[in-house]
Design a binder for these strands. Structure first.
Length: 593
RNA sequence: GUCCCCGUAGCUCAGCCGGAUAGAGCAACAGUUUCCUAAACUGUGGGUCGCAGGUUCGAGUCCUGUCGGGGACGCCA
């Protein structure tokens, strides 16, 4: 293992078991709450454990006295991992009952050696144990090109997928195509309109309720090229289905290209229409019916401000969502007899579970928040509680340019597509910026700021750290032309020469990378990776600058080959961890800028 | 009316499973450039964690209430 906190947690547990073995502590202690964490304050050592604090209660003992005893037991132990064997650490019980741990520098050096040995695989975890996880994300309606909000969901979902992969899950990236219902019918009508236009008919302005976007002009023309006048002047019943098929295929190609521009590829595309046609919806509802979870009833009118004018109490088919924590039972059929979106989505989620996934994650726009409880209710009901669904809601992106809001209106034709943004700023900038806020926080995206080459721009700042590291390595080759500077060779460098506090200040966060991966994966929060990278980059820039002020701290010292090698090892360690983090976010590390 | 999210420094935001004196960037102020990329760095000031209760040895974090902002509430997806 390379997770230093995990290693020390095992040590603490072993010490506690020693005390239990000696009869000094009773069996059946709630050890699960014992944690080892990096200290926030340097004065508190480097790691600390709450062991005495959490056990004092159940044991009805004074936490400080207990901390002393545990600290004593810790002093008598040696870490079992080879990496630390024979290397010192100091423990101290302190004030309310924390136990602080300070490591000999050699322990940190061992972590650097691990980074160099594992490369960008440093930080990989077996947290997931190979278990399968399904992430459904983007799932934009196939009615037009993606917009920036979809892009945020895409960047988030793909990063979360990569994060879970790094944490040891077998991940499937799913796209659920909403290719049934009124919206794709409107799409088909819009394309038919453009098709008539392409065939030379004077159609005038496109009617209300259809999609006015220019992008459909081309689709109409393509339709005309493929089918000629086949659907011209025919009634809608004749052309709706084939035009719809054509239009959806075109739109999905468009969306896939948008995703491709972001470097995102889904493993699985699930079609809403196919779920309906295959009878999967009936099957799913039959399964619920069996559990007595479906009935016919009348719902109260919605309590919203404007009571819907066409509202009438009507018996409908309902799922007992309220039994599973939802606020209301939920309808499955529309008044025309067709399935509600919810009914088909039940089948969608049942299929995920049937494909063998117990870890389900959906990434939705924040405006779908009202839908979360019912979907979780379904997953709980259908899997008998075995599967869990986590829904990540993505807040809006507000576009700015030099501080001025970019006003978007489909009607005025000032709508900015995802593609335009990505072409303007690049996919790396886009993907990184999308993770500089939590998913449930709105995000301001300023074209001027995100492309600015300054420390105020987090993408640049992190990229620059990687490029700067590469630059140091190039210079090192000039200074020591014959040296082998491979990672393998650097792992053999005399790392014990890294003793300066500012060097250790960089080394410590690098060593904590595996822990960041695990906690971010557990919380399903990829933004933590972006924040971590900014911290690490800051630490590196600080160290670099110290070298400017104090020549002895420079990475390359022609007079001291050994120290140079040790410092180059640190520089490479930084570059590898940054590259590893950027890989999760889907950003290419650059060698120079 | 009900449900969900948010409220932390002047601004934009982090804050892990409840833990020690609540952090970062920007802005403000004071500095650093013959030197591995100054495209950067160092330091200072700045807080009733919306408010009020509660649980706990301990609350920004959990619970209840309340105020403010956003979103959602059968036949849109």
């Amino acid at each position: 293992m390379t997770d230093i906190c995990g290693d020390f947690r095992r040590l603490v547990i072993a010490a506690l078991e020693d005390l239990i073995g000696e009869g000094a502590l009773p069996r059946e202690l709630p050890l699960s709450r014992v944690a080892v964490e990096p200290s926030r304050e340097a004065a508190h050592g480097e790691l600390s454990t709450n062991a005495a604090m959490v056990l004092a209660g159940p044991l009805r003992q004074n936490p400080m006295a207990l901390a002393e005893r545990i600290a004593g037991a810790l002093r008598g132990r040696e870490l079992e991992t080879g990496d630390y064997r024979g290397r010192g650490f100091w423990v101290a019980a302190v004030r309310p009952g924390f136990i602080n741990i300070r490591l000999a520098p050699e322990a940190w050096h061992a972590q650097l050696r691990a980074i160099l040995a594992m490369g960008t695989h440093f930080g990989d975890s077996d947290l997931g144990g190979g278990e399968r996880a399904n992430i459904e994300f983007v799932s934009a309606n196939p009615t037009g090109p993606m917009h920036v909000g979809h892009g945020r969901g895409a960047a988030f979902g793909d990063a979360l997928a990569a994060l879970l992969e790094k944490a040891g899950f077998a991940v499937t990236r799913e796209y659920y195509i909403n290719d049934a219902g009124a919206q794709v019918d409107a799409l088909a009508r819009s394309v038919h309109w453009r098709y008539r236009e392409a065939l030379g008919e004077r159609v005038g302005a496109i009617p209300e309720g259809l999609y006015p976007g220019e992008y459909l002009v081309e689709t109409g023309e393509a339709m005309a090229r493929r089918d000629g006048r086949k659907w011209f002047g025919r009634p809608e019943e004749a052309w709706l289905a084939p035009v719809k098929d054509f239009a959806i295929a075109e739109m999905m190609a468009l969306i896939r290209a948008d995703l491709e521009a972001l470097g995102i590829r889904h493993d699985l595309f699930v079609s809403e229409r196919e779920l309906i046609d295959s009878g999967a919806v009936e099957e799913s509802l039959a399964a619920l019916e069996k559990g007595g979870l479906i009935y016919t009833g009348v719902l109260e009118p919605p309590k919203g401000k404007p009571p819907p004018e066409d509202w009438e109490p009507r018996p409908q088919t309902l799922f007992r969502a309220a039994r599973f924590g939802d606020d209301l039972d939920r309808p499955l059929r529309k008044s025309d007899g067709s399935w509600t979106y919810f009914a088909v989505d039940i089948a969608n989620h049942r299929e995920k579970f049937r494909r063998g996934f117990n870890n389900l994650i959906d990434v939705w726009g924040a405006d779908h928040g009202g839908y979360v409880k019912r979907m979780q209710a379904v997953v709980s009901a259908l899997s008998d509680g075995k599967a869990t669904l986590d829904v990540k809601l993505i807040q809006l992106v507000h576009l700015f340019d030099k501080g001025q809001p970019v006003r978007m209106s489909k009607r005025a034709g000032t709508f900015v597509t995802l593609r335009e943004v990505v072409e303007e700023v690049g996919k790396d900038v886009f993907r990184f910026i999308m993770l500089t806020r939590r998913n449930d926080q709105t995000l301001d995206f300023d074209f001027a700021k995100v492309t600015e080459q300054s420390k105020d721009n987090p993408v640049f700042y992190v990229q620059y750290a990687h490029a700067r590291a590469a630059s140091v390595m190039r210079h090192a080759l000039e200074a020591f032309p014959l040296e082998a500077l491979s990672d393998e060779a650097l792992a053999g460098a005399p790392l014990e020469r890294l003793t300066d506090p500012s060097e250790l200040a960089l080394l410590r966060p690098l060593a904590l990378w595996p822990r960041v991966v695990e906690s971010a994966a557990q919380a399903h929060e990829p933004h933590r990776i972006a924040f971590f990278l900014q911290e690490v980059a800051a630490e590196f820039h600080t160290l670099w600058t110290k070298g400017k002020e104090e020549a002895t701290l420079r990475f390359i010292l022609a007079s001291d080959r050994e120290l140079t090698l040790a410092r180059l090892a640190l520089v490479r360690g930084l570059a590898l961890v940054v590259a590893s983090g950027l890989a999760v976010i889907g950003v290419e590390p650059v060698e120079e800028m």
